[in-house]
């Protein structure tokens, strides 16, 4: 049995580039990704140190079940790993590439990818934010008093801060991509 290790890491919605870099640097150190468990437990297996590029695609239903989709990536030399909440994970060794390769080759398709992520992941979060988190926070603020209430208030304030962070990151990432495309 090969040596394995687990690492816990959270990447927010817009941080797929950071995640790709993280997985690539792990492989360079001799750890290849084998599995990912909710909420962010990465399982690695010891391997030869190698420069391998990791890439994420996103389709709401996940596309692992679509053989023709996975096969198209395979034809182009990308190994399909697994789906995780709509994200499909691929990797390809840098040595087998012609120059720098990514699974998207123009900004239009990169923007379309971000658009799919927005629809699939951000829209539900936004709905939750405006229908639950914000009203609950206001309710807690206008109803101060006993300690359990205060604890709830802090909880919701933390949620608001966390959501704000995720939204801002996403907006910034989107702006960067847009600027690159213009």
């Amino acid at each position: 049995m090969k040596k394995q290790k687990r690492e816990f890491k959270i990447f927010t919605i817009a941080e797929y580039e950071q995640e790709q870099d993280y997985l690539r640097s792990q492989h360079q150190k001799g750890w290849k990704l084998v599995h990912l468990t909710f909420p962010g437990i990465y399982l690695f297996e010891a391997c030869e140190k190698e420069d391998v590029v990791y890439q994420l695609d996103y389709h709401q239903q996940g596309l692992g079940s679509q053989e023709t989709y996975v096969n198209m990536f395979k034809d182009c030399g990308w190994e399909y790993l697994f789906d995780f909440f709509g994200y499909s994970y691929f990797r390809k060794s840098a040595a087998s590439m012609q120059g720098k390769e990514e699974i998207f080759c123009d900004e239009a398709s990169r923007l379309a990818f971000i658009g799919r992520v927005f629809k699939g992941r951000m829209v539900p979060l936004l709905i939750l934010f405006f229908l639950v988190i914000i009203p609950q926070t206001i309710l807690q603020i206008s109803n101060p008093g006993s300690d359990p209430h205060r604890a709830l208030l802090y909880f919701y304030l933390i949620m608001v801060a966390f959501y704000a962070y995720v939204f801002i990151r996403f907006a910034l990432q989107y702006r960067t991509l847009r600027n690159r495309a213009d």
Binding site: M72, F73, E102, I103, C105, S109
Partner: peptide, 26 residues
């Protein structure tokens, strides 16, 4: 799909390599 990638690579002397994510989306 993949034969499109190959054909475009040949047509452009390897200058343009269509990536699978872009190809699938298109």
């Amino acid at each position: 799909g993949y034969s499109i990638v190959q054909k475009v690579r040949d047509l452009t002397d390897g200058e343009i390599l269509i990536s699978p994510g872009t190809l699938y989306g298109s």
